[in-house]
Design a protein around this nucleic acid. Sequence first.
DNA 1: GAAACCAAATCGTCATACTTTTAGGCTGTG
DNA 2: CACAGCCTAAAAGTATGACGATTTGGTTTC
Lengths: 231, 231
Amino acid sequence: MEIQGLPGRLLDELGPAIASGEIPEGAVLRGEELEERFGVSRTVVREAVRILEGMRMVASRRRVGITVQPKSLWDVFDPLVIRWRLAGADRPAQLRSLGSLRVAVEPAAAALAATQATDDDRRQLSSLAVELTVSAREADLTTFLAHDIAFHALVLRASGNEMFAHLGDTVGAVLTGRTEYHLMPHQPEPYAIRLHREVADAICSGNADEAEQAMRTIVTGALAELNQQLG
Amino acid sequence: MEIQGLPGRLLDELGPAIASGEIPEGAVLRGEELEERFGVSRTVVREAVRILEGMRMVASRRRVGITVQPKSLWDVFDPLVIRWRLAGADRPAQLRSLGSLRVAVEPAAAALAATQATDDDRRQLSSLAVELTVSAREADLTTFLAHDIAFHALVLRASGNEMFAHLGDTVGAVLTGRTEYHLMPHQPEPYAIRLHREVADAICSGNADEAEQAMRTIVTGALAELNQQLG
DNA sequence: GAAACCAAATCGTCATACTTTTAGGCTGTG
DNA sequence: CACAGCCTAAAAGTATGACGATTTGGTTTC
């Protein structure tokens, strides 16, 4: 998953710094400067910059240097960009964006899953719903989180749409961030749990409408909660 | 937008070849082989490969080479990946994926736009709807396509969600591809045009529900048409 | 037959030299 | 003074040779 080697290290420094605005839009870096600052060779700097260029976070121009691109050009769907933004000052904005995206995508994915899921998908979904209920009742938040993430990822994957499926990890990052954020205060709401079961049941029985509605209730609820917390 | 220089040229060769499956998943390339095949230096090959690695299309490992990753790992939201897939053998699958994505996202974007759009957005939307109607009536398909793309991109941008906004270009690529595909047969359907006006009016008057419904009708219609054409 | 070892292949990194582009200043002319 | 065109230097782009690190797969040895 991670980019390897020294360029990866460089990326771990530069990416978050740019994502958080510490290195602001329009800033100009010179390759040589980066070489010195990180004690690496030209090769390494260039490869790291190329990757950032691939994400459209920077553009390199002769006689000018490496300029940080406006945020509107960034590949905001790149998992690394999302992670960097979630880790830094942009976190609230990123959470809001992802919240809306979930509201749009997850109900559609649930509806598709009701018709497209394999038998194996349905079995896994069913058992995940049960385990979710159990860990919620036992107030085992760590296990609950893991199951919750797996549940949403599975629905997205079972939709049969590769683009939806790819959002699984991102949604996982949001859920992780969320429980970290309000520091695991209370046990999961019974209502939300019931909705997860409802989604699972609807998908298993091929009821697309019900799956979509239940999922919509879940994600709109999550978005409302988020907006409340962020003000 | 494009990646520059020799690495960019290399990418234009390798990317489509991998995306189309011509270089299949699991295939192993050697850096030196690429140097010879394209007559460029290590530097160039390495930078191009790094970019592909950033898209998770390949992984480079010591003593083994550059291996093409399974499609499920690719950054399917990367604009280049989408373009490469649209241009090659994967085009039907990519169109289907994007169709579902549109059904999920565009109605949500329209609803958001109804509350979030700036006055300027609303003005532009309004006039775009008019121009759309005109070019449709005149059966000027080229202009119509341009306006259609601009319309959908504007709604996505006006939603105020950066992630939605970023799908504007992608949707544009789909629309372009679509009219290229069935070779501009008939003039745009009057019903679809009316729906576009309805979306614009609803957004301008702040009616989120109506905007969402009208947009949903548009994109589900497009998806149905697509599925019909692809069998 | 298994475990330890060794060697070759390949990527990873560094250092250096040369090329290409281009921003920004300089110069000369009307 | 204004403008056009040239010129220079700065920075990225490319090429190449050398060496280091790692991993695979065979080979040796017990």
